[in-house]
């Protein structure tokens, strides 16, 4: 099958990528670019584990044709951390126990990042709404919402938020 070259700026690196018409954006980032952080869960837009940020908005990479993303900027979960330095949001996920099996985490992080980019201090209801398209089967969501809330507004006196500062031991 013939391939078509598309220009994609992935995590701030512009690249020219040959794609087939029936390649999804998820297949391109995972299989062609080896950015396997974004996950394929259901593959039909229900679970949200493939969420990436496309031109500033969270979208399902499994339901976006690579060709439709031609000329766009994509941020995947790999684009969050600066080398080994995690973002506040990622650290907050770790600190608040928001990661269990971890399969939904890349999607949760991207949905949360898109929310925080738009509204730096969302209330709990708004966080829950923004994450409502992402399914997690482990955590029961409370800790994920905590993590996003505390990334937006680190709470004085929260023992988890302070782990990093005090260098405290989790156990």
């Amino acid at each position: 099958m013939q391939t078509i070259d598309i220009t994609l700026t992935v995590n701030d690196h512009q690249q020219i990528i040959p794609v087939k018409p029936n390649d999804t954006l998820l297949e391109v980032v995972r299989d062609y670019l080896d950015l396997t952080g974004s996950k394929e869960g259901c593959g039909e837009g229900v679970c949200g584990s493939c969420t990436v940020i496309l031109d500033g908005h969270p979208v399902r990479a499994c339901l976006t044709l690579a060709l439709e993303a031609n000329g766009s900027a994509v941020t995947t979960v790999e684009g969050l951390a600066d080398g080994d330095t995690l973002t506040l949001l990622q650290q907050s996920f770790i600190d608040h126990g928001a990661v269990q099996c971890g399969f939904c985490t890349p999607g949760m992080l991207m949905s949360a990042k898109a929310l925080l980019d738009e509204d730096s201090s969302p209330d709990r209801q708004k966080i829950r709404q923004a994450l409502s398209g992402n399914i997690c089967r482990c955590t029961g969501y409370a800790k994920i919402v905590d993590a996003v809330e505390h990334a937006a507004r680190p709470e004085p006196g929260c023992p988890d938020c302070h782990t990093k500062e005090t260098g405290g031991d989790h156990d």
């Binding site: 976006t64 709404q129 398209g133």
Partner: peptide
């Protein structure tokens, strides 16, 4: 429709 942050943009 769908999920707040996702289907809404596409």
């Amino acid at each position: 429709i769908g999920a707040v942050s996702i289907q809404h943009y596409r």
